Amino acid sequence: HNLTITQGKLFFHYNPKLCLSEIHKMEEVSGTKGRQERNDIALKTNGDQASCENELLKFSYIRTSFDKILLRWEPYWPPDFRDLLGFMLFYKEAPYQNVTEFDGQDACGSNSWTVVDIDPPLRSNDPKSQNHPGWLMRGLKPWTQYAIFVKTLVTFSDERRTYGAKSDIIYVQTDATNPSVPLDPISVSNSSSQIILKWKPPSDPNGNITHYLVFWERQAEDSELFELDYCLKGLKLPSRTWSPPFESEDSQKHNQSEYEDSAGECCSCPKTDSQILKELEESSFRKTFEDYLHNVVFVPRKTSSGTGAEDPRPSRKRRSLGDVGNVTVAVPTVAAFPNTSSTSVPTSPEEHRPFEKVVNKESLVISGLRHFTGYRIELQACNQDTPEERCSVAAYVSARTMPEAKADDIVGPVTHEIFENNVVHLMWQEPKEPNGLIVLYEVSYRRYGDEELHLCVSRKHFALERGCRLRGLSPGNYSVRIRATSLAGNGSWTEPTYFYVTDYLDVPSNIA
């Protein structure tokens, strides 16, 4: 807008934040220059609390790290170098490059900038070799853009010569660093050979998330399962459950009422301010606690030095998902009996873990797994792929695949051998790939016309006998059925096997 004052003059007093240069501009645009008398524009009460600059400061050096910015700028000295009290560095987070010096300023003089007072450097006698002032900004957020400017702080001049310097606002972004852990990993099994893994992005990506790394490792069953005799009275049979499938998407929606109208769909109840505040506090606490764990609990591995020492970490090797089922080394339970199943799973520490690289999504279907087997899954978020990966501390989750139908069934015939004193040795093959492992066998036998009897055969007993022995049988026709019990439950009964026990007292003698 054009402003013209045809008559009258300007009068400025007691404006401590208004620089004289701005008042002189007002004289020019209003056409009143030359009308004012000496005392109409006070030299001592206008701009006496402001830094009124008329020179431009330029930054000469900028260096960044993930949490620091090192700045240096060209030296500046007023005509009387004693008038320079120091520099004021202003900075704040700036997602967009549209910041002005006066953003967030209120009537009390406060604003949204963080201000650092910096002492002037030592003055050199040689004007050509003056030290460049600077400042190291610490405690910054990774991968965050900051708006920065600097200006001088000078003393009051009796001659009211307006001098000083100020830089333009520059924008500097800190470097990326390792992201925080992925949030809320959930693993479920939808079949006997697959596990579905879902997660949420890290709360602090500290860069642009480029991919996720998912490692999985087959877990050995508890050692007590191999040692305890679950045929003993009072000892509860062990059981394991597989990871249940995901709930429906509708039930997972946030901010939804727990109660549904019987007449149909209901609208979600909005969260109160107290609920939102509580969630923010919980989120802040979780982030602080995660940072504490990362800094205190997890110790970084030592990389190899120039002395030739090897990095103890196993090298990563990509495998196809079809090879995942046989990740671990199978060892027989008892070496003397080769027909026992290889369900003991000690994992070799030198073995390469299978892994998958996930790009542009937060889910993965891990296939080719062994049925009813526990897996430990390790999830890392990465925001750099080359020249070397920059990934987060791992988040861990466990899951067990679903049982395989008929995996616990005894394959092959049940054979028998009759000894003296009416002892019958029953023999059968253990299931080759049971659900988890076989903890015991149930032997059901009966003599024709009598009630059915049951015998429990422990895992250890089966390994020693290759089956079991029935003792003290009365003469007669017998039928026997056997079924295995694994961590997933009972298998199917075998087809009945028949044998006849004679009275050993009636056996004919070869003595003449």
Rank of each mutant, 00 (worst) to 15 (best):
S251N: 11
S315R: 11
S262H: 12
G368P: 04
H425E: 13
S274F: 10
P245E: 03
T415L: 12
G234A: 08
R353Q: 11
E221D: 05
R240M: 06
L470Q: 01
V414L: 10
R400W: 03
K278F: 08
S509V: 15
L440Q: 06
F226S: 05
V296C: 15
G491S: 03
F372D: 01
V423A: 13
N339D: 12
V296P: 01
C231I: 01
N255E: 05
I418D: 05
K271Y: 04
V327I: 06
S492L: 10
P270A: 07
F285N: 02
K357Q: 12
N206P: 01
Y292Q: 01
D291F: 01
P300N: 10
T494A: 06
L455I: 07
V358W: 15
L487D: 12
E258R: 14
C468G: 05
Y292F: 08
E378L: 08
H461E: 05
G368I: 04
T502I: 04
E389V: 12
P475D: 05
R481N: 12
S223G: 05
P403A: 04
H294Y: 07
E249P: 03
R286H: 05
E310N: 10
T210R: 10
T502D: 07
P434R: 05
I482M: 10
V414D: 01
A399E: 04
F355H: 08
Q275W: 04
S248P: 12
F499A: 06
T502R: 12
R316E: 08
V359D: 01
C468L: 08
L277A: 13
R483S: 05
G467K: 10
G489Y: 10
D506N: 14
N477R: 10
Q384H: 15
F499H: 02
N435S: 07
R459Y: 03
C269N: 15
R459H: 10
P244A: 13
L487R: 10
S305W: 04
Y448K: 13
E227A: 10
T303A: 10
D229S: 07
A395V: 13
Y396R: 04
V443C: 04
G308C: 14
A394N: 15
D229G: 09
R400C: 08
Y448H: 13
H352L: 12
Q219V: 15
K271D: 02
N435M: 00
S344T: 11
P312G: 06
E279V: 09
S248E: 00
S284N: 14
C266F: 05
P475A: 09
S509P: 13
S223P: 13
A336F: 15
S283Q: 14
G472E: 03
Y498N: 15
R390N: 02
I482E: 00
P205R: 05
N255S: 08
R353V: 15
I209S: 11
F462E: 02
